[in-house]
Design a protein around this nucleic acid. Structure first.
Length: 424
RNA sequence: GGAGAGAUGGCCGAGAGGCUGAAGGCGCUCCCCUGCUAAGGGAGUAUGGGGUUUAUAGCUCCAUCGAGGGUUCGAAUCCCUCUCUCUCCGCCA
């Protein structure tokens, strides 16, 4: 959520900046709601103040044995007036906060203009795509022929957009998780955490998935609770700091977490239907940082570097893309995508998305820190990114490390995780 | 699943319709005292929001004692619903 003060003091400028994302802010509606809010709030508070004063007077009169009836008569209609005023205030505030919760973050100045992914800007490349002296195959052919991947079995068990894995490919999949967790926790300073994979609506509101993106989530049908499967570890991990005031020493708070992720992929029918690229369930190792406000942009670069390090150690060619204003997510100020080279597709595909949110999530989360300069609680900034998406990393390893005979070599970085297996 | 008990500030803990945003203690901060250490004395120490202000500060008002409703002129205190925690029994990886 953006600072409500923005909509009072810098409405036009805010509207202009949101327009970069293709969002048009109804400034007339906003002004109208805001002035109604102000009027209703002032009336309500005045009445409350009057009630408090009268009640206090009654208390005093009563203890000193005076007749309280005259004061009681005075306040007879106060209760009704107050109730009406409170109701009006609640209505306006409800409308206002629903509107505020649906307005996305403002793109950072370093975010390029643009409407969609075609306008994203590549900022660097690492590694050279390998020259094959045979026609490289995609991960589906490789995995299925190897016997390590079975999509038909997953269709039988559940439905489309799932996979089952067997034997050494399942092991490679697990090895990637262990490798990334170890790298980030022992070399990049992140503390490993384990969290619930099922979360409540408050948590999803905190990180921005609700109220606007419910259709992307798997909700658990239950009369008692409204629980959801996590679409990313960002949700439970970032919500660790919800409703808390951190000390300056606690920052930066760096957490790494492996979880499965569940996405309904509503609206992506017909897109990436083949293989493991887009699944309803996939594993991810997520990096989350909670930082002081003036450190968030540096933290984004640092965190992106940590994700890049995984690709470098696995010797997978990739590029870094600065998403344009029209392509960044709802809560993000800025997003850098890592795209890995996939020989089977002959193109770079997203394998990590690293974003800085400013105080947008923190405001929803009520996540603050005590600034020693002001001695007051102030909102923290949040940053996160995949480090990396496991399924897509597996795809990248299979396709980049394939041999002419259909076997797959294992990247040396994974040696200690594969129990002596060097070729699949 | 059954039976009980509970939820108050950073922590412990009083409070049982009015002067309680909340006693007392601990912790923490600042000051004084003490030649180290220990001890002692004093002051301060919740969060969010509104108004005022160019903006801080200040001033002022409002809200908050797990959450939401209700009763009342007035609720931490009474009533209802929900959530969570703890104890015992049952079941269980």
């Amino acid at each position: 959520m953006l600072d409500p003060k923005r909509f009072r003091d810098d409405l036009e400028d805010t509207a202009r900046q949101l327009a970069r994302r293709g969002v048009s802010l109804d400034t007339t509606l906003m002004n109208n709601l805001e002035s109604r809010r102000k009027a209703a709030q002032m009336t309500t508070q005045e009445l409350q103040s009057e009630r408090n004063a009268r009640s206090k007077a009654i208390g005093k009169a009563k203890t000193s044995g005076e007749d309280i009836q005259p004061i009681l008569d005075e306040v007879s209609d106060l209760g009704d007036k107050l109730k009406a005023a409170e109701q009006r205030l609640n209505e306006v505030q409800g409308e206002l906060s629903a509107l505020l919760m649906s307005i996305p973050n403002i793109p950072h100045g370093s975010v390029p203009d643009g409407a969609n992914e075609d306008d994203n800007v590549e900022i660097r490349r690492w590694g050279e795509p390998r020259e094959f002296d045979f026609e490289p195959r995609d991960h589906v052919d490789l995995g299925v022929d190897n016997g390590g991947m079975d999509f038909d079995a997953a269709v039988k068990i559940t439905g489309s957009r799932f996979v089952t894995m067997n034997g050494s490919i399942a092991r490679l999949h697990r090895a990637l998780i262990q490798f990334m967790l170890d790298l980030h926790s022992s070399e990049h300073g992140y503390t490993e955490v384990y969290v619930p994979y099922i979360v409540n609506a408050d948590s999803l509101r905190g990180t921005g998935q609700l109220p606007k993106f419910e259709e992307d989530l798997f909700a658990l049908a239950n009369e008692e609770h409204s629980y959801y499967l996590i679409p990313t570890a960002e949700v439970p991990v970032t919500n660790l700091v919800r409703d808390s005031i951190l000390e300056a020493d606690d920052l930066p708070l760096k957490r790494v977490c492996h979880t499965p992720c569940f996405r309904s992929e509503a609206g992506s029918y017909g897109k990436d239907t083949r293989g493991m690229i887009r699944q309803h369930q996939f594993e991810k190792v997520e990096l989350v940082q909670v930082v002081k406000p003036d450190e968030s942009m540096t933290a984004l670069d640092e965190l992106t570097g940590h994700a890049e390090r995984v690709l470098q150690l696995l010797e997978l060619p990739y590029r870094v893309v600065n998403l344009c204003a029209g392509d960044i997510g709802f809560a993000a100020q800025k997003t850098l995508d890592l795209e890995v080279w996939l020989p089977g597709q002959g193109k770079y595909r997203e394998i990590s998305s690293c974003s800085v949110f400013g105080d947008f999530q923190a405001r929803r989360l009520k996540a603050r820190w005590r600034n020693p300069d002001s001695k007051r609680p102030e909102l923290v900034h949040t940053v996160n990114g995949s480090g990396l998406a496991i399924g897509r990393t597996l795809v990248a390893v299979l396709e980049n490390y394939q041999n002419a005979d259909g076997t797959i070599s294992i990247p040396t970085a994974l040696d200690s995780y594969m129990g002596g297996i060097t070729t699949l």
